[in-house]
Write a protein that binds this DNA or RNA. Structure first.
Length: 232
DNA sequence: CCTTGATCATTT
DNA sequence: AAATGATCAAGG
């Protein structure tokens, strides 16, 4: 039986070694060995899988607005996949700034920084598989290529333009080719300040940036054909 | 309230 | 069946 590390990985290689060691194991095994109870479902513990994987890779717990491995400049994302390897959910990236965004540039945006380097860890997520029996897949270390970067930048600029023009209430999840903007809060009562259609301050639900499923799927698929040893 | 970890539940 | 909009928990 394995045991979770007690310190962050000292190198990218060590991180990948840790992640690769999880491939093929079930969430039940990882939970047992870490002394964590497995929930019947995720209705009341939606972040359970991500937090379990964080422990096994030695990420610092917490809600700091930073990368999971700041020393390595790497962000960790677990992604639920179906039997065919397709993402079952969009991927949350970060909150969207709704005020004080004049002159904000893509190059220095939170989205750009978060996605600079991501360690994707696919996990079986079909609801007909009990959480404890769901298997962890092989890790994929990814940085956006030129095409992906351009798509992300185009979407980010379109969304941020709408926000700065006071059109945040008109933004639906349909806007954006690969990046979308959706509510992100504890509930519908949470409100934050934004810009209204006449430039006046308004109260609206906080929003977050999410990656569409197809975009994430292409990342995982590319590695299937283009990486040296995708199954290692 | 904000940010982290995301999935749920209803609509389309 | 897929996508959108809503929601749950914990740390700060």
């Amino acid at each position: 039986m394995m045991q979770p590390p007690d310190s962050p990985p000292s190198s990218e290689q060590q991180l990948m070694l840790r992640a690769s060691a999880l491939a093929g194991l079930t969430l039940g095994e990882l939970a047992d060995w870490a002394g964590v109870a497995v929930p019947q479902d995720f209705r009341r513990e939606k972040g359970w899988t991500g937090q379990l994987i964080e422990r096994w890779l030695g990420a610092e717990a917490g809600s700091r607005p930073e990368q999971d491995f700041p020393e390595l400049g790497i962000e960790l994302k677990t992604v639920p996949i179906d039997a065919l390897g397709k993402p079952l959910e969009t991927t949350y990236v970060c909150f969207a700034p709704l005020t004080g965004i004049a002159g904000q540039r893509w190059e220095q945006s939170n989205v750009r920084h978060k996605l600079a380097r991501v360690l994707w860890l696919p996990v079986e997520g079909s609801r007909d598989i009990p959480p404890g029996q769901r298997r962890v897949g092989a890790p994929v270390l990814w940085s956006p290529n030129t095409d992906e970067l351009l798509l992300l930048q185009q979407d980010w600029e379109e969304l941020m333009d709408m926000i700065s023009l006071g059109q945040v209430e008109q933004i639906t999840a349909r806007v954006g080719q690969v990046l979308q903007l959706r509510p992100k809060a504890a509930n519908g009562k949470a409100l934050t300040q934004a810009i209204g259609s006449h430039g006046q301050p308004i109260q609206t639900r906080p929003r977050g940036f999410y990656l569409r499923k197809n975009f994430t799927q292409n990342i995982l698929l590319q590695h299937l054909y283009l990486s040296e040893n995708p199954l290692a």
